[in-house]
Amino acid sequence: MLFQTPPYTLIDLSRKNDGSQDRAAFAKDVAAGLSQSPKRLSSRYFYDANGSRLFQQIMALPEYYLTRAEFSVIQRHRSAMVSAFAAAGFFHLVDLGAGDAMKTKLLLEELANQKKNFDYVPMDISGAAMRELGDDLQQTYPELHVQAVVAEYITGLKWLKQHLTERKVVLFLGSNLGNFEREEGMDFVRQIRQHLQPGDLFLLGVDLAKDPETILAAYNDPGGVTAAFNLNLLSRINRELGGNFDLEAFSHFALYDPQLGVMKSYLVSRREQEVYMEATGARYAFAAWEAIHTENSHKYTLQQAAEMGNKAGFKLVTSYLDENSGFADMLFEVV
C-alpha cells in the first residue's frame, strides 16, 4: 500500500448552501414531473434518511438477489481482479458511488494481503457517508492513504483528472448503470472514458437478463418493503415540500418487460383525487388508476454491455460472473 501522511483526507466539492437550493430543485423537478402526461418522479429522490434505511432492508430480502450476486462475483474473483488492477504498478482505486464500500472492502482486503501499491479514492454525493467510511478505514487500514471526494460523479471525475495524474482503476459497481435510460447510460460511460487516460481500467457492475419472474420478485417483494420504499417518495414530498399526498390512496406497481430488458416501477392513484404542494402553490389532479412512473432498472446481456463499452472507447478485458451467470463485473481498459 502507499504510505503517506496524513492517511485520510476529505475533499468536499458539493455545493455549500443552507439547503434552500436543493429544496428548490426538488420542488421544480416534482412540479415538472407531476405536470407531464404521463406523470413521473425521479428515482434520485428516493434516498432521504428513511429511504436509505428501507433500501438497506431491501438488500437483505431473499428476493433481492443483486447485492448478494455481485458480492459473490467479487469474492470468487477478487484475486484475479487485484492482479489485473496492479499489473502495471501503482494506481488510484476510484470508487464511484462508494457508500459504505461493503463490496469494495473485499478488494481492499485482497490488495492489502497482496501488498499492492495503491491508494483509495471513494466518491459519493453524501458527505456523511464519506466521513463514516473514512473513519472506518482509518481503524481497519491505518496505513492506507484515502482521499474521499464528496461530489456528483462528473464533478468528481473532473477533479480527479486534474489532481491525480497517475493510473486509475475506476469502479462503478452495484448495477447502478441500470438506473439510467439506455442512451443516458451510454452517455455516462462515454463521460467516464473522457476523464481517463490510455491504460486506465474501468470495472462495471451489470445485472444480466435472466428469468423475468426472478427479476420481478426482486422489485415487488411479498412483504411490501419495496412498496414502502416507493411510497416513501410521496412521504418525502409531504414532509419537505408541504405536499398532502394520502399514501393510502396510492399503491406500488411493478412490471418487467423482457423484450426491452427493463424493470419499471409505478405509484398508482387508487381514486380520482387532487394533491396540493405548498412549495409550488399548485394542485395536481389524478384520475382514478393514473400512474406515476418512478423508476426504471435496465438489464443487459453481456454482448450489449460489451458493445456499450466499445462504443465509449473502452476495450473489454474480461467479464467476472457469479455462479449463476446472472451478474457480471466487466473489466474494460481505455484504448
Rank of each mutant, 00 (worst) to 15 (best):
D12H: 13
Y65T: 08
V146I: 10
L216E: 03
G19K: 14
G205L: 04
N176L: 05
L93P: 00
S325Y: 11
S235N: 15
D100M: 10
T67A: 10
K103D: 01
P222L: 07
F71A: 11
T294F: 07
P258C: 08
R131M: 08
A227E: 05
A209W: 09
G261S: 09
K161W: 02
L260S: 15
S83W: 06
P7W: 00
E110L: 00
S325H: 13
F118C: 06
L267D: 03
P122I: 02
D200T: 04
S37V: 09
F85V: 03
D329I: 00
I215Q: 02
E295M: 05
D135E: 13
K161Q: 14
S265T: 14
A218V: 07
N113Y: 06
D211W: 03
S79T: 15
K299Q: 09
Q114R: 12
E184D: 15
A24G: 09
D95G: 02
L234V: 06
D18N: 14
R182P: 05
A128G: 15
E183G: 12
Q273D: 13
T140N: 10
V268F: 09
D22K: 13
L157A: 05
E323I: 11
Q139G: 08
F202S: 03
G51C: 03
N50G: 05
F253A: 14
R78V: 04
A227W: 04
Q304E: 11
A288N: 15
S43D: 10
T214H: 15
R271G: 10
K311I: 09
F314Q: 01
H293T: 09
F332H: 02
E70T: 04
N296D: 12
R193I: 09
E110D: 11
K16L: 10
R78D: 09
